[in-house]
Simulated scan of single mutants.
Amino acid sequence: MEAAPAPTGHNSGDGDTPKPHYHGHRGRVRERVLKSGTEPLADYELLELMLFYSIERIDTKPLAKRLLERFGTLGDVFAAEPEQLREFEIDQRTLIHFKAMREVGRRLAERKVKDMPVLTNWQQLIDYCHAALAHEKTEQFRILFLDSKNVLIADEVQQRGTIDHAPVYPREVVKRALALNAAALILVHNHPSGDPKPSRDDIEMTREIKAAAGALGISIHDHLVIGRKGHASFRSLGLLT
């Protein structure tokens, strides 16, 4: 009795099964990165590459483009709320990946200002503040404590608040500065609205902290307000006089 012929078509094992249009794409992207590095990659390509390692067996390019179209920047994608990302069927694995990438960026920026005189590394300080605060969804008030040589001793979150307010108490600021033996402070907070223009409350609060700190010989070098696309400096605006 003759053997039945082998099945043909899509179920055959002869290699005739049509492959998806993105077959081999991941390998080509990796080869491109190994050859030319990541700098030439567009934002969507960089995001697509990162998604390779948390999402398997699908074309991640359309997802990367949709995420950037929805949120705007890589930083905004990584800082998006879990509920927002679930609209794109982002699973827990990818969510954790995004959180880790955001923290990596913050720590790399922090390393450039840590243990260095911050007044002579001002742009690096601005970059660090943006990495730490620009994409926060609620207002956060941080203090950079400096020693007598303006080297960063500590960066601490003093208060967390709502979308437009974080209560700050000058007495607590000065108390912590004394505990750390700080000679100077740089105040930093974010505006989740994106507009870094100081509010009237920001200006009044800064004056109160400056007066309380000045009475104990502690200088206020600046108060930075961080927005998504820029920052405001109280010193540059003449608001620390």
Rank of each mutant, 00 (worst) to 15 (best):
Arg93Val: 15
Arg86Glu: 15
Leu240Phe: 04
Ile203Met: 12
Leu74Pro: 08
Trp122Leu: 14
Arg30Asp: 11
Asp222Arg: 02
Gly238Ile: 02
Lys149Gly: 08
Arg160Leu: 12
His10Phe: 14
Pro170Asp: 04
Ala215Asn: 07
Asn190Ala: 01
Glu136Thr: 14
Lys112Met: 10
Ala154Arg: 08
Glu139Ser: 08
Ile186Cys: 10
Val174Gln: 00
Leu108Arg: 08
Val104Ser: 01
Arg200Ile: 11
His189Lys: 10
Leu240Cys: 08
Glu69His: 12
Ala213Met: 05
Arg228Val: 07
Glu87Leu: 14
Pro196Cys: 09
Glu45His: 12
Val113Gln: 03
Ile203Ala: 08
Ser148Cys: 06
Ala232Pro: 06
Phe78Glu: 05
Asn150Ser: 14
Ala177Gly: 01
Gly24Tyr: 10
Arg171Glu: 06
Gln159Lys: 07
Ile163Arg: 03
Leu187Lys: 09
His97Ala: 12
Leu49Gln: 02
Phe52Arg: 03
Gly161Met: 09
Phe52Lys: 02
Arg160Glu: 14
Leu152Ser: 01
Asn11Asp: 11
Leu152Glu: 01
Pro18His: 09
Lys35Pro: 04
Ala64Gly: 07
Thr8Trp: 01
Leu146Arg: 12
Pro62Ile: 00
Asp164Pro: 04
Phe98Asn: 15
Ala154Met: 03
Lys210Asn: 00
Cys129Gln: 12
Tyr22Gly: 09
Asp91Thr: 04
Gln124Leu: 06
Lys19Arg: 14
Val77Ser: 02
Ala109Gln: 11
Asp14Trp: 08
Ala42Trp: 09
Gly105Gln: 10
Glu2Ile: 15
Asp91Asn: 09
Gly238Tyr: 00
Ala183Phe: 01
Ala184Gly: 13
Thr17His: 13
Gln123Arg: 13
Pro62Cys: 03
Asp115Tyr: 14
Arg28Trp: 05
Ile203Tyr: 07
Ile163Ala: 05
Gly13Asn: 13
Asn150Tyr: 10
Val188Phe: 02
Ile226Ala: 12
Met205Arg: 05
Gly15Asn: 05
Val113Cys: 04
Asn150Thr: 03
Phe88Met: 10
Ala232Leu: 07
Leu85His: 05
Ala177Leu: 02
Asp76Glu: 14
Arg235Phe: 13
Leu180Thr: 00
Leu67Trp: 11
Met50Arg: 03
Ala213Gly: 10
His191Cys: 04
Gly24Ser: 12
Ile226Asp: 07
Gly230Pro: 00
Arg28Pro: 02
Leu67Cys: 10
Asp164Glu: 13
Arg207Gln: 14
Ala80Gln: 11
Leu178Trp: 01
Phe78Ala: 10
Arg70Glu: 15
Leu185Tyr: 03
Ile220Ala: 00
Ala132Gln: 11
Pro192Leu: 12
Asp155Phe: 02
His165Ser: 08
Gly227Met: 07
Arg235Leu: 15
Glu83Phe: 10
Glu87Pro: 03
Ser193Arg: 13
Pro167His: 02
Glu39Val: 15
Glu172Thr: 00
His223Ser: 04
